[in-house]
Simulated scan of single mutants.
Amino acid sequence: MPRMHALELLPDEAGCDVVRRDWQVLRDAGLPSQLDHRGATNSPHVTVLAAPALGRDDEQRAADLVAPHLPAEVRASGIALLGGTRVSVVRVLDVPDPLVRAVLDLRSRVRDVQHLGWLPHLTLARRMDRADVGRAVEALGHEDVVLTLTSLRRWDPDAGIVTHL
């Protein structure tokens, strides 16, 4: 399976702190956490799209369509599970409609986008056993969190380069 190139929205510093606190809460509870991801580019982000390849035209479209809607205040309004036997634990985001429309417009113009539609979320942990989900939800709590998405980046896994658009 090819490594996926991605376009991602990044929260401001305060939003990153909120997400990293969640990561730390999970680690402190002895659960999987995104803190366990050792990659140099691991940071809180919202994936706009992932595809086997992205070109300069795709980057320009993202800058033209999505970037004008930033900064955008979003609300992390719930916890969800993605996956099968082992799951990703995520905070689902309420995103302003104009940004949602821009992302869907962009996704419709990029070839071979992974996954249908768009489920805006922040990943807190990957590959968690379903048996541990209750502990994770208890540790994370049920408070809604508001954060601000401020920038857009492109991840090129082949070159190992992050480009801010």
Results as ranks from 00 to 15, higher is better:
residue 97 D to R: 15
residue 76 A to Y: 02
residue 91 R to H: 06
residue 65 L to E: 13
residue 64 D to K: 09
residue 93 L to C: 08
residue 49 L to N: 05
residue 41 T to H: 14
residue 63 A to K: 13
residue 50 A to Y: 01
residue 56 R to A: 13
residue 98 P to C: 12
residue 54 L to E: 06
residue 39 G to D: 14
residue 82 L to Y: 11
residue 55 G to R: 08
residue 102 A to I: 04
residue 91 R to N: 01
residue 93 L to V: 05
residue 72 A to D: 13
residue 59 E to K: 10
residue 66 V to F: 09
residue 36 D to T: 01
residue 49 L to E: 05
residue 50 A to H: 01
residue 100 V to P: 04
residue 92 V to N: 01
residue 51 A to T: 00
residue 78 G to K: 05
residue 69 H to C: 13
residue 96 P to D: 13
residue 95 V to M: 11
residue 90 V to Q: 04
residue 57 D to S: 14
residue 94 D to H: 07
residue 41 T to E: 13
residue 32 P to W: 03
residue 80 A to G: 11
residue 36 D to W: 00
residue 81 L to F: 02
residue 57 D to E: 15
residue 82 L to V: 13
residue 51 A to V: 00
residue 59 E to H: 15
residue 83 G to A: 08
residue 98 P to N: 13
residue 69 H to L: 08
residue 66 V to W: 08
residue 88 S to R: 10
residue 96 P to N: 14
residue 94 D to R: 15
residue 96 P to Y: 07
residue 97 D to W: 07
residue 102 A to F: 04
residue 48 V to G: 14
residue 56 R to F: 06
residue 53 A to T: 14
residue 90 V to T: 15
residue 60 Q to F: 01
residue 82 L to T: 10
residue 103 V to G: 01
residue 80 A to L: 08
residue 31 L to S: 03
residue 33 S to Y: 01
residue 103 V to C: 02
residue 106 L to I: 07
residue 69 H to V: 07
residue 91 R to G: 00
residue 66 V to S: 10
residue 60 Q to Y: 03
residue 75 R to P: 01
residue 42 N to Q: 11
residue 47 T to P: 02
residue 54 L to N: 02
residue 31 L to F: 06
residue 60 Q to H: 13
residue 100 V to Y: 00
residue 79 I to Y: 07
residue 65 L to W: 09
residue 87 V to D: 00
residue 84 G to D: 12
residue 94 D to Y: 02
residue 87 V to C: 05
residue 103 V to M: 03
residue 65 L to S: 08
residue 60 Q to P: 00
residue 78 G to M: 10
residue 44 P to D: 09
residue 82 L to K: 04
residue 44 P to Y: 06
residue 55 G to K: 03
residue 53 A to Y: 14
residue 103 V to K: 04
residue 99 L to K: 04
residue 99 L to G: 09
residue 73 E to P: 01
residue 35 L to C: 02
residue 100 V to I: 14
residue 51 A to K: 00
residue 50 A to T: 08
residue 48 V to R: 12
residue 80 A to P: 04
residue 52 P to V: 10
residue 75 R to W: 03
residue 68 P to K: 06
residue 83 G to K: 03
residue 80 A to V: 07
residue 105 D to Q: 14
residue 83 G to Y: 00
residue 89 V to N: 03
residue 35 L to T: 01
residue 48 V to Q: 14
residue 54 L to D: 04
residue 88 S to W: 09
residue 83 G to Q: 00
residue 70 L to E: 10
residue 52 P to W: 09
residue 105 D to W: 04
residue 76 A to F: 02
residue 102 A to R: 06
residue 35 L to M: 03
residue 78 G to I: 09
residue 48 V to E: 13
